Simulated scan of single mutants.
Amino acid sequence: MGLIMAFCRRALKLVRLLFHSTFRTGLRYGVAASLENRPVMRSLQVRSVIDAGANVGQFALLMRHFHRDAVIHAFEPFPSSAAIFARLFAQDRCVHLHRHALGMAAVEADLHVSRRADSSSLLPISSSQTVFAPGTEEVGVLTVPVRRLDDVLSSADLPRPSLLKIDVQGGELDVLKGAEGLLPHLDYIYVEVSFAQFYQGQPLANEVIDHLQARGYCLTGIGGTAQDRQGLIVQADLLFSRLQNQ
C-alpha cells in the first residue's frame, strides 16, 4: 500500500508540473519544482529571494512561477548541482548564482557529499540520517568556500519585501548567524528545521526558533513536513515574518 501511495503522489506531482510552462521548462533539465512549498509560498508578495541551499533549482523555479520579476540570489556549493542550476536559469537575468556555501565565517570547509546530492552537508552525516533516508550515506568529502551572507549581499541587492529560504542540511543556524547585518532588511525567513539530529552537531528546531524570535520574527506558517517510520514529524519547513515594529 505504501508503494502505491508513493507512486500516486509522484504521478500527481508530475501532472501538476506539466500543467505550467515554467515547471515544464524545469523538467527539461531534470528539475522538478518544489510543489510541497506551494501552499505557503503562493500567498507571499516578495520582490527578492535568497535561496540558501539551492541545489538544482527546485525552490527557485517555484518562486519564479509565482514572482516573474523577483530578483533571486541562489547559493549552491556542490559543483554538479550548481551546473544544472546555471543551465536552467541561463536566460534569466534576474537570477544570480553564487557557487559557495553560506555560514557564519568566511572559510574553506569540508562538504560531506551524500550519495543523494541534496542531502550533502557541511556537517558529518549521522547514522540517524541514513536510517531515516536510506541511500543518503556519505560517499566523499569536497572542500568548498563558505561565506557570510552579509558579506556577499547588501540591502541594496534586495528589493523589499524580501525572503530568505534556508535548506542546508543542519547548517541553518550558521547561515542565520552569518546574516545578522541583513536581518533588518529580510521580511520573511523560510527555514527547514529538524526535531531529531540527522547531522553531527546539528542545532534542533527549538534553537532556530528561539534565535529568530529573539531577532523580531514570529512563526506565521508551516510548509512541507517529513515523517519517520512511526509517523512522527521529524522535519518541517517553517515560515517566519518580521514583526512590524521591529
Results as ranks from 00 to 15, higher is better:
Val144Met: 10
His65Val: 04
Phe132Val: 12
Gln244Met: 07
Pro79His: 05
Glu108Lys: 13
Lys165Asn: 09
Ser48Arg: 02
Ala117His: 10
Val71Met: 14
Leu12Gly: 05
His73Phe: 11
Leu27Lys: 03
Phe89Ser: 04
Arg9Glu: 14
Gln45Leu: 10
Leu173Glu: 02
Thr225His: 00
Ser162Tyr: 04
Val49Asn: 02
Val49Met: 07
Glu207Phe: 00
Arg42Asp: 11
His98Asp: 05
Ser194Glu: 03
Asp51Leu: 07
Phe240Glu: 12
Ala83Val: 04
Leu239Asn: 00
Ala236Gly: 04
Arg9Ser: 14
Pro145Lys: 12
Ala236Lys: 03
Arg229Thr: 14
Tyr29Leu: 05
Asn55Gly: 01
Gly178Trp: 09
Arg93Gln: 14
Thr25Cys: 10
Val141Phe: 04
Leu123Pro: 01
Ala54Asn: 12
Leu35Asp: 09
His100Ala: 11
Gln202Ala: 00
Gln213Gly: 01
Thr220Ala: 09
Val208Gly: 02
Thr143Gln: 14
Leu238Asp: 10
His67Arg: 13
Val144Ser: 08
Ser194Gly: 07
Ser119Tyr: 04
Tyr199Ile: 06
Val107Arg: 15
Val146Glu: 01
Ala205Phe: 05
Met63Thr: 14
Asp237Ile: 10
Gln169Tyr: 07
Val208Asp: 03
Leu142Lys: 06
Asn245Asp: 11
Asp69Lys: 06
Gly140His: 04
Gly221Phe: 12
Pro203Asn: 04
Pro77Thr: 11
Arg28Pro: 01
Glu76Cys: 09
Gly53Thr: 05
Ser241Cys: 12
Gln213Pro: 02
Glu180Met: 13
Phe132Tyr: 13
Phe19Asp: 09
Arg242Phe: 09
Ser119Gly: 01
Asp150Ala: 13
Leu182Ala: 10
Pro203Trp: 02
Asp187Arg: 07
Phe19Ala: 11
Ser114Arg: 02
Gly26Ala: 04
